[in-house]
């Protein structure tokens, strides 16, 4: 067959191999570039918060088709689609900046309902279970409460007040006799809505900020045993160590009611006796300063 002859001729074979190599190389170059851009798009800035129910960032960019339906159904205009070169997140993906407009934590979570693909996980039905991030009192030098004043605004506006943020009373070392009501965030209750960050009265940046949990939280030290939580002893039976009593080689002979050879050395003449050591020190036979 003439067709067979031509296709198997060396010239055509070479042509085929060259074309294949060119196409493969072209696809590899273009594909690498595209892959670089795609991976680069994952670099989500710390202060860009995804809507409630958003999948983890590595899964989110596989699921979000950037249609903006969550943005449209957000009644408070909290959500925005990222614009190229203006906002940090991947172009066209939804996010919000808590300092501008925080999440109002709608009970019916319309943004999640609107998402057609499940990039916002529909299994999130109780907004209190949302996990958009974690508030962190990041500037403990300028926070008014940390200075000993009673601002309390972040605590007051928190939708999960007394659970996500509590005020912990501490001693005010500066004045010596006042209290500091320190705002403390509890990660099990904080939804990352950002109302605290929005309402912080400091000008400019907020002293309390919502950060992604991957940044805000450390991993638990599982290699440490927390004795107050887990009361089982590490070893089965207690090791009976010898009791230590005051005596030579210790520095507490003066107390309690310490015995000193010679009453003039007693710190207080009214202190009677105590006990006599069963042995005396080798040189002086007396103990004193």
């Amino acid at each position: 067959m003439p067709a067979n002859v031509t296709t198997s001729s060396p010239v055509n074979r070479r042509r085929f191999l060259q074309d294949t190599a060119r196409v493969t190389a072209g696809c590899a170059v273009a594909g690498s570039f595209l892959a670089y851009l795609s991976l680069d798009a994952r670099a989500l800035p710390a202060q860009a918060i995804r809507p409630p129910g958003a999948l983890d960032e590595d899964k989110f960019l596989a699921a979000c088709i950037r249609c903006g339906l969550c943005v449209r159904d957000c009644p408070y205009d909290t959500l925005k689609l990222a614009e190229l070169g203006v906002d940090g997140p991947a172009t066209g993906t939804p996010y919000f900046t808590a300092r501008d407009v925080p999440c109002e934590m709608c009970e019916d979570i319309p943004c999640v309902v609107a998402c057609p693909t499940g990039a916002l996980d529909p299994s999130l039905t109780n907004i209190d279970d949302a996990d958009m991030g974690l508030a962190v009192l990041i500037d403990q030098e300028r926070c008014l409460n940390a200075l000993g004043l009673r601002c309390d605004v972040c605590y007051r506006v928190c939708p999960v007040i007394d659970e996500a943020i509590t005020l912990e009373r501490r001693h005010n070392e500066r004045s010596g006799h006042h209290a500091i009501f320190m705002p403390v965030v509890h990660s099990d209750a904080c939804t990352g809505c950002g109302k605290c960050e929005k309402s912080c009265v400091l000008p400019g940046e907020s002293a309390i900020k919502v950060l992604p949990r991957r940044i805000a939280m450390a991993e638990a030290a599982d290699h440490y045993k927390l004795g107050w939580e887990d009361r089982d002893p590490l070893v089965d039976e207690l090791i009976d160590l010898p009791d230590r009593l005051p005596g030579p080689g210790t520095d507490n002979l003066a107390a309690p009611g310490g015995y000193i050879n010679g009453t003039e050395a007693l710190p207080d003449p009214s202190m009677e006796g105590g006990f006599t050591p069963s042995f005396s020190l080798p040189d002086t036979g007396s103990v004193g300063q």
């Binding site: 795609s38 950037r66 925005k80 614009e83 172009t91 066209g92």
Partner: peptide
């Protein structure tokens, strides 16, 4: 390979269409 919707990083169709509707930035 990247676990992303890769073409949407470039796609001029959605860049323009979404841009006209939601704000275009530098797209």
């Amino acid at each position: 390979a990247t676990g992303t919707i890769a073409w949407e990083v470039i796609n001029p169709i959605s860049m323009l269409h979404r841009g006209l509707i939601f704000g275009i930035g530098s797209a």
